[in-house]
Design a protein around this nucleic acid. Structure first.
Lengths: 342, 342
DNA sequence: CTGTTAGCGCCTTCAG
DNA sequence: CTGAAGGCGCTAACAG
């Protein structure tokens, strides 16, 4: 019922090898013959079996993409961009959604990628153990987050410098009670991003001679709801902040929601800066540090493809630019009555 | 270098068949032997080659998911949910991002799914021709949009009734100049959603004795930017609407942005209702008709899996509930000075 | 330029 | 309960 390569070979009175060569555009087949073979194959509705050709050639023409959460705007956007690059190059994208610790552990334990894909693009930052497992596959590897890593081609941003942009913006506006919404539980993701952005926060405060206050820091879990809870916590402090740096736009939006619930005006009562450049940040007028999100996917996929073609001039690390976009959620501190701490 | 089934067979002094049976949990292997085989296989780091087992068994253990745009919240959320169901069941998800007409046409022309996947979940509404191509694969098919379709298991919502909820809400608030932001160019997606939601709009207006005015309708292309442009167009009408129904939350958010740019107050100057129940709708206080988005993916994937197990009691159509969530972008019409048309 | 010969690694009868 | 054969559909040398 399903038409195989020998079917078209028989129909044409040639050998299967010739059909194979003709259809894959390999040299060694006269143009005229090739054209006829292509026509007959199309007519018969022939498609090569992926499993059979993979088995015979050793290549799968598939690339695994590892994601923490596909539904999140950031990852969805990166995935979308990467998929375009891969499919254009003739590769299938096999998606592994490794959100929960359980799924993730099982994945790295079983490593179902072996003999299954030709390369892997990870949108999640692997732990050292996980990275080692991945390296053991012996195929090209790329990551879209974090800094350089041995054995991986990575595309990232300068998290620390970028986050400094945000905090310094607040300081320059005259704020001195500056809150931070980030996360301490990097467990499921194992990424360094929260650490780097937090360190930038601490650095800028120190530079400005502002004393660090634990009460001005809250965990927003990098989600909208978490951001809302975190902001609510900050508002419950003995002396709430006059400005807040949220390490992601989604947490910033959650914070905005909390402020609205408390009938506080932004930026009159409190300023908020986010991070990412979410497509909807503009809708709510959120000041943010924007990064070229889709480019993460496009660039990483492109580099991976080059590595797959055994190019030897593929860079190990590509740093993408970021920039502060000032909109309407940040404003100068009203006066210095509440400012300063010491 | 890569360990094959015969390697573990030799290491144990048994045949490859036995190893195969043991590892896949088929009966016919003593429990004791199975345990030892499993242990040795793990120790050797053996993973069955997907291509080889597919070729031999005829099953791929892969499911194709077709998407128009992965980056869009709605599709990303559905995909995320569906992936969880599939991977839990041991299936790989192969993603096909068919956003552009060109990609889409090439996809349906070549139909790379043949001998590649065991089932397909489509998040895009196929044209009749495309549906026919898909049916020709002879494998279980599911769709997460639209109504019942022969040959497909579909999970959807009652678009018309749901949209009526939104428009009627506006009418009940006393509005009579009600605008619509939707789209007429369903070309790339070929979906009926815009038609159904628009029809609901027309029906409710007619029911309320409000005359239809072409000038109150604008194309928002179902994107944030499109929604912004559409709202701007509506504001340029000789007599702008006092309320607008945007057929998607993303367009509604774009409309909100346009209104802010024009310094118009929502809901004081104009009311806006969206559709979808976007996770960020709450942040901007958007009144909307919410649908259980992730459930689309979960349910469709579940039904597909049952169909794959040859269950015969799988429903052809599953309708998910929707509900109007009133927030802060809709309010009663100020007075009737601007209301009415005839 | 084209055909022949061997597998790729696994699963599935069919024997025992 | 286990082993031996055969083949899934294709590609890769190797001949000619």
């Amino acid at each position: 019922m399903t038409v195989s390569i020998t079917d078209v070979a028989n129909a044409m009175g040639v050998s299967a090898s010739t059909v194979s060569r003709a259809l894959r555009g390999r040299e060694g087949v006269s143009e005229e013959l090739r054209a006829r073979i292509v026509a007959v194959a199309a007519e018969l509705g022939y498609t090569a079996s992926r499993s059979a050709s993979s088995l015979a050639s050793g290549r799968t023409y598939s690339i695994a993409v590892l994601a923490p959460y596909v539904g999140r705007w950031f990852f969805g956007t990166v995935l979308d961009a990467a998929e375009r690059v891969f499919s254009t190059a003739g590769y299938d994208v096999v998606l592994y959604n490794l959100g929960s610790a359980e799924t993730r552990n099982r994945f790295f334990a079983e490593l179902p990628l072996r003999k299954r894909v030709d390369a892997v693009l990870s949108m999640l930052l692997p732990t050292e153990d996980e990275a080692e497992r991945l390296r053991s596959l012996g195929i090209p590897l790329a990551i879209t987050v974090g800094g350089p890593r041995p054995g991986f081609t990575t595309v990232g941003i300068d998290d620390r410098a970028s986050a400094e942009l945000a905090v310094r913006h607040l300081v320059n506006l005259g704020h001195r009670r500056i809150g931070l919404i980030g996360t301490r539980s990097t467990a499921p993701l194992h990424w360094t991003t929260p650490d780097l952005r937090r360190r930038a926060y601490l650095d800028v405060l120190a530079d400005a001679g502002i004393e660090y206050e634990p009460a001005l820091e809250a965990d927003g879990e990098y989600t909208v709801d978490g951001g809302e809870r975190a902001m609510t916590d900050l508002l419950a402090a003995r002396q709430p902040p006059t400005a807040v740096f949220a390490e992601s736009d989604e947490m910033a939006m959650g914070a905005l929601r909390a402020l609205r619930a408390h009938r506080l005006l932004v930026p009159d009562d409190i300023s908020i800066v986010g991070f990412d450049g979410h497509e909807l940040a503009d809708v709510v007028g959120l000041t943010t540090v924007a990064q070229p999100v889709a480019d993460h996917g496009t660039e990483a996929a492109g580099l991976l493809l080059r590595r797959l073609q055994a190019a030897d001039d593929v860079p190990d690390y590509l740093e993408l630019p970021t920039r502060l976009i000032v909109r309407n959620t940040t404003a100068p501190h009203r006066n210095s009555r509440n400012g300063g701490t010491s």
